[in-house]
Simulated assay, not measured.
Amino acid sequence: MTVHTVAPHRAARAARRRGLALGLLAWLAGLAFFLPVAWMVLTSLHSESDAATNPPSLGAGLTLDAYREFFDSAAGTGPWPALINSFTASTFSTLFVLLLALPAAYALSIRRVRKWTDVLFFFLSTKMLPAVAGLLPIYLIAKNSGMLDNIWLLVILYTSMNLPIAVWMMQSFLADIPVSIIEAAQIDGARLPSILARVVAPVAGPGLAATALICFIFSWNEMLFARVLTGVTAQTAPVFLTSFITSQGLFLAKVCAASVVISLPVLAAGFAAQDKLVQGLSLGAVK
């Protein structure tokens, strides 16, 4: 009798210890990811002289001079054109990706085409080629077509780059949608565009939000093609960030301030869609 009573208590204590250990590990992992961001924000609030000290001075005075210099457009180097270009390229490419990926994922999950697994592998294989390997052909095509330093060239490139990932993600999301719902809509006379817009999209809303957020982040952070294919007119925020690395040296406080500002749109989008993102990823993308 005593043995049967003690055993559950030992198991409960062991489970609590495992839970505490996992919780502590999660907190340590979170701090490991958060500390570089906190250090970047703190450095952006220091003067250039304090930011350049080695080892860094944690007790140095705080100032907003780096942010004032970053937003100063008196010399014609203000960040607003680059931020607008990044927002334009990321937003439009994400919208185009969703418009193209939704019917493709529908055909691969609900109304499956023949050899749909081979089609999915083909989409995935397009991401196996290093981006730099296609840089020269794309540059020559853009040059011959007069599309260099054009924001719509980046929209086309970002759409094609993110489309395979979006199809893969949305295929797993749409596979969880009950076919009976779609059949009921077909019985009511709904055609495919109406089914996609009024039935599939609302049900797969969290998956669409997760896919859109990931595509937006990838587009916003892309720098290789933007660096080579743009100049002044279509310069994006990541390319503008590299302008602070000059022959005069690295202005560390200003670079950190610029990094904080450029990261804010992505952080705001992630915070606004965090519920949809978690719910969407749990539908099957990482299940």
Rank of each mutant, 00 (worst) to 15 (best):
D65R: 13
L58H: 01
L108P: 12
F96R: 02
C215S: 12
V167S: 00
P79C: 04
Q248I: 01
M128K: 13
F33R: 06
L83I: 03
P81N: 04
V179P: 04
E183G: 04
V286N: 09
A184Y: 04
I156E: 00
A190M: 06
E222S: 05
F271I: 12
T63E: 09
V266T: 10
A29F: 01
I177E: 07
L99W: 13
C215K: 04
A253L: 02
L35N: 10
R191I: 07
I156F: 03
S259R: 07
A74K: 06
P238C: 02
A26D: 10
T246D: 04
F218C: 10
D65C: 13
R13Q: 04
T246E: 02
A66L: 00
D72L: 08
R17A: 10
T94K: 13
T91Q: 03
A105R: 02
V6F: 10
V255I: 13
L196H: 02
R17Y: 09
T242K: 00
Q171L: 05
S93I: 06
T91C: 00
W152F: 14
P193V: 04
A142E: 13
L20H: 11
F271T: 09
D275M: 15
G61N: 14
W27S: 10
L31M: 11
G30M: 12
G19R: 08
S49V: 13
S247D: 03
Y158W: 11
Q274F: 09
H46F: 10
W80I: 09
P137L: 08
Y67F: 15
L102D: 08
V266W: 04
A51W: 01
V37Q: 14
T2M: 11
W39H: 06
F251E: 11
T117S: 15
V167P: 05
L22S: 07
F251S: 07
A38H: 01
R111Y: 11
F33H: 06
D176A: 11
P56F: 00
I177M: 10
G205T: 08
P265W: 01
T242V: 00
P79T: 08
P164V: 09
L35E: 14
L62T: 07
L283H: 08
V228N: 12
A204K: 08
S109R: 09
T43I: 00
P206L: 08
L45M: 14
I181F: 13
L64A: 05
L64R: 05
T53W: 05
L208F: 14
I245V: 10
I245F: 06
M147R: 14
Q171F: 03
P238I: 01
A52I: 08
L196E: 02
L135S: 01
I156L: 09
R112A: 06
A185C: 02
G23Q: 09
L148G: 02
R227V: 01
S243F: 00
F87D: 03
R191L: 10
L95T: 06
P206C: 12
T5P: 02
T77P: 03
I138W: 13
I262T: 11
I110K: 04
A15P: 06
P202T: 07
V261G: 03
R198E: 14
S194M: 02
A131I: 15
S109H: 09
W39N: 03
S57P: 02
